[in-house]
Every structure is written in C-alpha cells, then in structure tokens.
Simulated scan of single mutants.
Amino acid sequence: MDRLQAMTAFVRVVDTGSFSAAARRIGVGQPAISKTIAQLEDRLQVRLLIRSTHGLTPTDAGIRFYERAKLAIHEADEAELQAKGAGAGLAGCLRVCAATTFARIMVLPHLPQFMARHPDLEVDVILDDRVIDLVSEGIDVALRMGELADSSAIARKIATGRRSVIATPAYLEEHGVPQVPADLAAHQALVYTQLGNSWTFHRQGTEASVAVAGRVRFTAAEGIRAAVKADMGLAVTSDWMFWPELQSGEVLRVLEDWKLPELELWAVFPTGRLASAKARAFADFVQRIVG
C-alpha cells in the first residue's frame, strides 16, 4: 500500500463525506477506495471512520490523522513543485476562504480566468464572514479586510480600498444630500455592527466624528447591500461592496471631499508552515484584479 496515496484517499473521503464521491474525485472505483481505507486502518491498528446509515464520520483518531495527512500531502505537493521548477503548472486542491459579499462581487466573476490558467487545479471556496481557524479548517489562504486580529498571522497586504458614504438617488432625493459630516446625524444610517455607529472623517487636516442614528443594524454586508438598495438609508462601506452599483449609478457617493479611513485587504496564510505555491498564486491573482 502506497502511504501517500492512502492518505490522499482518506482525506478525500473525509472532505467529500463518502467513498463514492471520493472515488469520483480521485478517478478510481469505489471498491478501491473502500479497500484502501480498510488497509490503512489495519496498518494503523485504529478505527478512522465510523460507518452508519447517515454516512461517514471520522473518529477522534481519524480527525487527528486527517489533519496530519493533509499537511503531509501539502508538503509533498510543494516538494514536487519545487523540483519541477517555477514553470510547472499548479495542481491539486486549493482551499480559499473569503467574506461572502466581497468574494461574490470582486473575486468569483474572475475565477474562471484563474481556473483556465491552471487546468489541473481544484478550488474549494469557503464563504464565511467570520474569522475562522485556517489550520483546523484546512484553509490554504484567506482574504481578510481591516485590521488583523492576530498580529502573529502570516499575512501579506494585497490591496487598499476606499470607504465611502453611499445611498441611492431615490433616498437622497427624498431626504436631501448631506453637505458636511454633521448632517449625517439627521439621516437614517444603516449600521454595520463591525464598524459601529461612530464615523470619523478627515479633510485638509480637519477631523470630524459623527455618531449616527440607525433603526436597523446588520452583522453582514449582504444586509447592508439589500437595505441601501431598498432606499432605507445611508451607509459607510468599502467601494468593493457596491462596485457594480457605483459603476452603474444605482448608488451614489456623498461627502466625497471628506475622507474615511481606507480598508486594507490581506492574504492570510496558515501559521506554522510556508505559504504554498497555489496560495501565493491565488493571492497574486486577487491582487491583480482588485489592486
């Protein structure tokens, strides 16, 4: 039994949740996958999977083996790429994590270009607005915005985005266009809980902070987008979050001569190992399309 092939089979079974799906992913028959897992359990003298009518569930030993096996496969892939040289194409599976709205608007429309450039590469895209643990989730690279909560994270800044106060023409026609930051206190603000309800502006050395009032607060950018487009109020947001609507005129910037703090976009890699060639290539790709 080839140990690396057995590890790959086991990882695919856990990732897909079934022998048949893993077999399709690898390109072999289901009996071959079942036999490989049985041989692996015999070799290790431990049960790795619990089989039931509800599917396959890794045991505690299986979870520990899965995490180590993924790392071993990753290191083997990197060793091959290094041996083949920079001209080698990328292959295997790349797991990417990004905030839902940012990925949907700024990254996913361009993903076919990246896939076409690397035809032997598979990409798992995990859309999650939360900061998840990259190692335990097997993430190769995460796209994160704003200040990084973990100062020890292995990260690379790949872009800086503009923040603006935006609203629809219909809202502004009904409620008026604010001329200075203080005017925002009289408007209905759509508050993104991650930013809070205090907005600070700068213009030619002058700073103005405004505590805005809003009857509706949101924990996710999708809520802000829906509320703005429904003419419910003003919002402070990155231009990335409303890129199509800003281009079409469906939403407008106000207070353009007042500046808000810019938003940094980071490519974050798992702590404890070098960023893979696949992860670096994806970070470079995102930097080109949003930078």
Rank of each mutant, 00 (worst) to 15 (best):
K70G: 15
L90M: 13
S276P: 10
M232H: 09
G291D: 06
V13Y: 04
V123L: 13
P270I: 10
K35L: 15
G176W: 02
K157I: 02
D239T: 03
Q113M: 09
V14E: 07
E174G: 01
L94V: 07
V236W: 01
V216C: 04
A153R: 01
V228W: 00
F102K: 04
W258Q: 03
L81K: 14
R95S: 11
P261Y: 11
G62T: 07
V210A: 11
L49V: 06
Q194P: 09
A220Y: 05
G55K: 06
E222N: 04
C97F: 02
L71C: 01
A76D: 14
A86I: 07
I132S: 09
D257R: 09
T200V: 15
M241I: 08
F65I: 08
A277L: 12
T57G: 00
A79C: 02
S238Y: 03
Q204A: 14
F285L: 12
V14G: 08
A220S: 04
V107K: 06
W199D: 04
G92C: 05
G89K: 07
R47L: 04
V123N: 04
R64A: 12
V46R: 12
T59V: 02
E173R: 13
I158G: 14
G138E: 01
E147V: 14
A98C: 13
Q194Y: 09
V131K: 09
A116F: 07
K259V: 13
F114N: 06
A189W: 02
A142T: 01
T160F: 01
